[in-house]
Write a protein that binds this DNA or RNA. Structure first.
Lengths: 215, 215
DNA sequence: CGCGGCCTGGGGTGAATCACCCATGCCAGG
DNA sequence: CCTGGCATGGGTGATTCACCCCAGGCCGCG
């Protein structure tokens, strides 16, 4: 099976170079080129390629928005981002837009080919330095805090906060900790004052942000 | 610079095969082998390798726990998981443990070598099918719902729910929607009944799970 | 045309919460 | 030794919550 590929980059020279590189590969056919977002969308509709190799910097619209538009209308079309941008910002936004691969232009030619083949197979190729960013985000996002200072809460206050965040009432917490409900209320007041929160629901959101509880 | 590598797998035959494969590579030295978690930890301390190639299925302890132990004591040591497991479960747990690479045993030898070189360089190598899982988790985790049915809530109820989730009181919501506080209370009762929730804090957690609000 | 669902309001009750006030021990650090 | 932070309690009053009751108006659907 041959991969039918659409090339999107606003620089004709770059497109030529990519065409040279990609056409030397077997089972890979470049069915079209586009230098602008409008052309890209039109050609996707016209040619129904398997894969779009997308530059982010386009003259008339962002490659991110273009990717989003393509994935919304033709979800089966894989999009691989090929760009000079290696920062978190563009990378994450491109993933959200539905990209199946992300390769910086400084990457080795073989890596681009790997990304194209991988994305065409329905998988995802991530350039290692960007995979690292994603994994960091994953690990951090899943459980950000716990060991964090919790803004100067005492041990007992943190303990009470954990129960409060679960939605327990003062009485329930009091029984769990075998102290008076009034003491629980006292702790809660101190907690809310220290964290500058003003309601139980704010406490829940705070606890989720800090990873104390799972939503 | 030569990569100093420690091989951890409980099958001697597999270790031999890997040694054959890896030793044919330049700039790669296998400094030791371990068949059990205890040996692995001991050898890491003794040999201070750059990288540990870790099987998950070990006789005395999980490769995941072993990875965690290694990364806690020697964060500079890169760990690449090489395993038969390709499901989300092991993959995500291995990432949490601190792995810099994840390669299924069915992968091509070149992919293992790429993973080793990438991880040794401080980056992350993810096998494409697993990179796909991670990206899916990333995209889903960031904004999971919104368009979902919300379990049969009416439009007005969803509107009230949005305010409730923010922690607004009945009176505040009433003023925002220019209706009576009693009506807000009524909507809230219906919402809680439909969603089988029993407190405002439960509503907040529900709203965060559904992506209605951000924590 | 009636039926049911939705939105809108009102009343009531008991419990819980909130936001203040107060005090007592205990223990560490200046 | 004594000041301050921490944990532990009590009290009070206003407010809110959670859960019941009720009903009228509107709109679509059979």
């Amino acid at each position: 099976m041959t991969i039918r590929l659409l090339l999107v980059d606003d620089h004709a020279v770059v497109r030529s170079g990519l065409r040279m590189l990609l056409e030397s590969e077997p089972n890979l056919e470049i069915v079209g080129e586009a230098g602008a977002a409008q052309d890209a969308l039109r050609l996707v509709e016209l040619l129904q390629p398997d894969l779009v190799l997308m530059d982010i910097g386009l003259p008339d619209a962002s490659g991110i928005d273009t990717t989003l538009a393509i994935k919304q209308r033709w979800p089966a079309v894989a999009v691989v981002a090929l760009t000079i941008h290696e920062d978190e910002e563009y990378f994450f936004r491109m993933l959200h837009a539905g990209a199946s691969g992300y390769v910086p232009k400084r990457a080795a030619p073989e890596e681009l080919l790997t990304a194209v083949r991988t994305a065409a197979a329905g998988e995802v190729y991530l350039y290692p330095s960007l995979a690292k960013l994603l994994v960091q985000d994953f690990v951090a996002g899943a459980r950000p805090a716990q060991a964090e200072a919790l803004s100067g809460l005492t041990e007992r206050e943190q303990e009470v906060l954990a129960y409060l965040a679960e939605g327990s009432s003062n009485l329930e917490i009091a029984e769990a900790l075998t102290i008076s409900p009034k003491t629980v209320a006292r702790h809660r007041e101190n907690i809310m004052a220290k964290l500058n929160l003003h309601s139980r629901t704010d406490l829940v959101k705070y606890a989720i942000r800090k990873g104390i509880i799972q939503p």
